[in-house]
Design a protein around this nucleic acid. Structure first.
Length: 278
DNA sequence: TCCCAGGCTCTCT
DNA sequence: AGAGAGCATGGG
């Protein structure tokens, strides 16, 4: 566990291990964090805005109360987890060991379930720059103002809209899927908050009831929004890597924390796609 | 311009 | 059960 120091106008995470802001906030698991030219990251989750930056090996958070930090930011950044132990457990596979070493500053964010679900509905057959654009327009049009930006819209808000209402976000064929997800969540037909308490298989089968949600999108929602660290989303990049570098099989040593391995591999192959040796 | 993008649904065998 | 077309839109 990290040393947390509550300072006057900031929260200091001392001696942070395995927490690189750029790797964690811009590795493709979340789409709404941004960094300014001074290296200060900013973003909104659970309707609250914070900023983060590095300070001599510590990470400083500003804009969060002590209460909000202990209530959700600590879990949002997965601070209780010992990532070095996870990385050690991956070392029996050489390629995975290299990927984990390269991506060792990534932490799996525990995002709001509905935001994770919608974000990865939008991600299907899409590229990351455009995913970010669509989500940004979704928040600007239908979220609530928070500081200089916007919150992610609630399921209730989106459920009140029609597919035509979503035209400004230019999400294409995915609009009807967003509406269906919002309706099922806001009506209570699907209780996203309960998914963390179900088994992985049970939780996935619940999400598959939503139109436009298949195994990959469901796994992303479970991994990034519901704490199911064993979920292993198989996108085109991962399928390629599994076939080329892992003999078509997910390494056995990833069992139990496969989602972390998945994110390491995803980051590794994308950051090195112009290199030959990996 | 053309190919492709953190896939899924629908249809046809 | 498995294969393949189509899908909206636009980044590179």
């Amino acid at each position: 566990m990290n040393d947390i120091v509550y300072e006057k106008n900031a929260i200091r995470i001392k001696n942070v291990k395995n927490f690189d802001l750029a790797q964690t906030l811009d590795c493709g698991q979340a789409f709404r964090w941004s960094v300014n030219d001074k290296g200060v990251w900013s973003g909104v989750a659970f309707g609250k805005y914070i900023e983060l930056y590095n300070d001599n090996g510590d990470i400083i958070i500003t804009g969060s109360s002590e209460r909000d930090f202990s209530d959700f930011w600590s879990d949002y950044f997965d601070l209780p987890r010992d990532y070095s132990a996870v990385i050690d457990s991956f070392s029996s596979n050489e390629t995975l060991r290299l990927a984990a070493s390269f991506a060792s500053g990534i932490r799996i964010l525990r995002q709001e379930p509905f935001e994770a679900l919608c974000s990865f509905i939008i991600s299907q057959n899409n590229n990351i720059p455009r995913i970010k654009g669509i989500i940004s327009r979704l928040c600007e049009n239908f979220g609530e103002p928070v500081k200089e930006t916007y919150s992610f819209p609630s399921a209730e808000k989106l459920a009140s809209l029609s597919v035509e209402d979503l035209a400004p976000i230019r999400s294409g064929f995915r609009a009807k899927y967003i509406i269906d997800a919002a309706k099922k969540v806001s009506s209570g037909e699907i209780d996203l908050d309960s998914l963390k308490n179900l088994s992985y298989d049970e939780a996935q089968s619940v999400l598959l009831k939503i139109k436009g949600v298949g195994p990959k999108v469901a796994d992303c929602a479970l991994l990034y929004g519901c704490g199911h660290i064993e979920a292993f989303p198989k996108d085109v990049w991962i399928k390629r890597a599994i076939n080329e570098y892992f003999g078509g099989e997910i390494p056995e040593c990833t069992k139990g924390a496969a989602g972390i391995a998945q994110q390491y591999i995803f980051y590794y192959i994308r950051e090195n796609q112009n290199n030959k040796h990996f």
